[in-house]
Write a protein that binds this DNA or RNA. Structure first.
Lengths: 258, 258
DNA sequence: CAAAAAGTTCCATTAAATGGAACTTAAGTT
DNA sequence: AACTTAAGTTCCATTTAATGGAACTTTTTG
């Protein structure tokens, strides 16, 4: 096994709630001999992938990773386009907007636009959430055929709350609904009291697929407002789909029911 | 030599002008046997550090790097604070603002705020420029004692243009001026027709140091506007320095001459 | 100051990285 | 379509690095 896999595992330890790691953290998180953890962190620092925080024993990602990460952000022009749409819709509606991508069964936020409303929803960039239990995830999963989803979730899944899909039947039903309507939604699922509406769009040339999402306090969003979000996101995504000639794009159904 | 060093070298190949690399690119850029380049890229992809663009042979940074890079951005709260100042000044003045950090003799842009003016200056995030030949770089170098700078540039340096410091004497003179005034400036140096004003601030706890910079078309900036930029940046940086108790912070000199 | 926790170094063993060459695949040329 | 060249991959023996247990050092805590 290459040390690169271990290094990537280290990077996966970082999140909005874990800005740095220590040798002991790695031992616990990755179940690794501490001799190994010690050397791995030092080697990653020597390579320039990590840096030590001040002169403490804490390690955090380096500016090199930030730089390379920015390249990802800007190279995937699909993300840029989608981000522009979400920025516009977020500014219009006042709620928080996100762009997310899928990695296997995880969804990762790539960009965010905080809303103006007092009760604004903030999920952090770079955090992973379960794809099947979020509107962004289901918007992206809905682009796949059911058998591919079954393969993806060969190990099954554990619903994080009572409102998340409890099994395959429920997941497929929700995906079918998303496909029929052209958007996915969630309420009270990953985070209590929070609703979200998402659409997905892809670029067949680069293979990228992103979800555009507007998130809001569930109690605060009227039916009219939800309809406005759906229309704006759907139209924006449709414009992108037209540019990329996305063959899997699911346009909004003409009758926006529910 | 660990493969991590090679992997880090690969990441350093990416920039705003090189969004993806191929086996041949690596052979040329890193002077590496192509058998090696081929396996390295594949291994990095398998580890999740890179991803292939569509089904081509091109590799680009993955979302994992973007995620870890975001952690860097937000973990270094100094960057956040400095970014807020630059965002405000950029919005006030209308010119482009940057936050940059130093890595050895290089300066790397971390965040940017495009200006409103028609002639706006855009340098890309994540690109490396020479520290000695930029206002951001000299603002940061001015925080070091001269002998440390001499050690840093033990191998000498090559001026990129006639307006950049041509040797140590000139560099030290400019750094002395920056220390005396509390800000660094450049004009026509890295980019023709572009001027910039920078101040630096650090956090002794984390060891972070950043430069706050406003960049503008040289012909477009009046003396009054420059003075306004200097005052705004200087005051913003001073507030941050007060919070972090930065012992090396150089406040604006009371008489803003030149 | 003692005890515990955290981190580093050492060592033999195991596994991965290396680079040259042969091979395969893709792209351009007549 | 066959030819030529460029680009990428796989194979191999050799060299080098990674591994994990234990001993050791440093730092933190009561």
């Amino acid at each position: 096994m290459s040390i690169l896999l271990a290094a990537a595992d280290v990077l996966r330890c970082f999140s909005s709630t874990r800005h740095d790691v220590t040798v002991t953290d790695l031992v616990a998180l990755l179940d690794m001999p501490k001799s190994n953890a010690s050397r791995l962190l030092r080697t990653m620092r020597d390579a320039g992938l990590l840096e030590t925080v001040g002169d403490s024993k804490r390690y955090r990602p380096s500016v090199l990773l930030h730089q390379a990460g920015q390249v990802y952000r800007f190279s995937a022009s699909l993300i840029d386009r989608a981000d522009a749409v979400v920025a516009r819709v977020s500014a219009e509606i006042g709620h928080t907007g996100y762009i997310s991508v899928r990695q296997g069964t995880d969804i990762i936020g790539v960009t965010a636009h905080p809303g103006r409303h007092a009760l604004r929803v903030v999920t952090a960039i770079g955090d992973r959430i379960a794809a099947f239990a979020s509107s962004t995830g289901r918007a992206l999963l809905a682009r796949l055929p059911d058998d591919e989803i079954r393969r993806l979730y060969a190990g099954g899944f554990t619903p994080p709350s009572a409102t998340a899909p409890q099994g395959f039947d429920e997941l497929f039903a929700r995906l079918a609904a998303a496909r029929a309507r052209g958007y996915a939604e969630s309420e009270d699922e990953a985070v209590r009291g929070v609703g979200a509406i998402s659409v997905a769009v892809g670029d067949p040339v680069s293979g990228d697929e992103v979800a555009l999402c507007i998130s809001f306090p569930a109690a605060m969003a009227s039916a009219a407002e939800r309809a406005a979000i759906i229309t704006s996101l759907g139209q924006g995504a449709a414009e992108i789909a037209a540019i990329t000639k996305d063959p899997r794009f699911i346009p909004l159904s003409s009758s926006i029911a529910e």
